[in-house]
Design a protein around this nucleic acid. Structure first.
Length: 343
DNA sequence: ACCAATGATTTGGC
DNA sequence: GCCAAATCATTGGT
């Protein structure tokens, strides 16, 4: 039996009780209504329709009149009695539903994406600093990155303002309903539990609206994300300086070209790229170098000279052209010098 | 348009 | 989780 049916039976009980039991002070009218029910209903309808034409003051006066009516306590007690009978069956219906797994998923995702939860101010500042440290113009990837962050911030802002709006509307509406119920409790019995239930119903409704908001926010983030990833797949070559830094490291560690996590971070910072990009680069470089050492000979020598010159400059012994510092004991063959005498 | 270079991704082994 | 290897997809020079 659902609530609606219960309500209907409750109402049926009400009419059954009130009509014969509650004495109508206007016996003439009662008789009339018994004799001519059609006309009476028409009369009531007319009265109801007339309500819309009444001014607010008139309505207030009417309400006041009802509250002060001498039969009001009697009506109230009758309503109480009816309620006693019906409330028992209503009580304990679907109390406290568990938190929706769907909404929990959405919440987790929004939190993970940084839409909800604390603002990530430090990250952007660090990225900007890294871009500045990389020297000169920021790379394209960082432009895309900031674009992504800006869009995400936009989504975040919309999400929060909407959420706030909903929450405000919810509390306003709840207040309104509670006031209404309190007002009505003067004429009909309303338990605090009922008010609570009503509030719960309102909150459920609003949370379903909230879920829609969360869902569409998630969608927006996903779309943004996929666009960003697509943009990343549209690769840009690293700038000359970055390649230089990476190659320098590679050829000066040719015996063991596997940078540690710290070294990768350092290189990433120097080049203005991510650590995984550094890893990709070294992965590609190792395999391509190994596959065709000959092809990389020139490059290897170039960087060998570079590091040698650097080392020489540092040690302030430029006159002695030492062989490059390429400690070699591992799997990657050392570069050999070109026969054209370029060292 | 073609093609080598190159950054990113996938696959499979450890 | 890192690596090698293969492969994909784009870039940039010709």
């Amino acid at each position: 039996m659902d609530d609606q049916t219960r309500m209907l039976t409750g109402l049926a009980g009400l009419s059954g009780l009130t009509q014969p039991d509650v004495g109508d002070p206007d016996s003439v009218r009662k008789q009339q209504s018994l004799v001519q029910p059609q006309q009476d209903i028409g009369d009531i309808l007319q009265q109801i329709m007339a309500i819309t034409d009444e001014s607010l003051d008139e309505a207030q006066a009417r309400k006041h009149a009802l509250n002060c009516h001498r039969m009001k306590p009697a009506l109230f007690s009758v309503l109480c009695e009816i309620k006693e009978k019906t409330v028992l069956s209503i009580r304990g219906v679907q109390e406290e539903d568990p938190p929706d797994p769907q909404i929990m998923r959405l919440d987790n995702m929004l939190l993970a994406e940084g839409v909800s939860g604390p603002e990530k101010g430090g990250g952007s500042a660090a990225a900007a600093a890294a871009a500045a440290a990389a020297g000169g113009s920021p790379t394209d990837s960082s432009i895309e990155h900031s674009d992504y962050r800006a869009k995400l911030a936009q989504i975040r802002q919309i999400y929060h303002s909407e959420l706030e709006k909903y929450e405000q509307a919810c509390s306003e509406f709840t207040n309104h309903v509670m006031n209404l119920l309190r007002e009505q409790s003067r004429t009909r019995p309303i338990s605090p539990k009922e008010i609570e239930r009503m509030v719960a119903i309102i909150h459920r409704k609003f949370s379903s609206i909230q879920m829609q908001l969360k869902q569409s926010t998630c969608e927006a983030v996903m779309i943004l994300r996929s666009r960003f990833l697509d943009a990343r797949r549209k690769r840009r070559n690293f700038n000359k300086q970055a390649t230089e830094v990476l190659n320098e490291y590679f050829y000066s560690h040719l015996s063991n070209p596997y940078p540690s996590e710290e070294a990768k971070e350092e290189l990433a910072k120097k080049c203005g790229i991510t650590v995984s990009q550094v890893s990709n680069w070294f992965g590609n470089k190792r395999i391509r170098y190994k596959k065709n050492i000959g092809k990389f000979q020139e490059e290897a020598n170039l960087y060998a000279v570079k590091t040698a010159v650097d080392a020489a400059n540092v040690s302030a012994q430029a006159s002695q052209a030492n062989s490059p510092a390429t400690p070699n004991s591992g799997g990657y063959p050392a570069p050999c010098y070109t026969p054209d005498g370029r060292l």
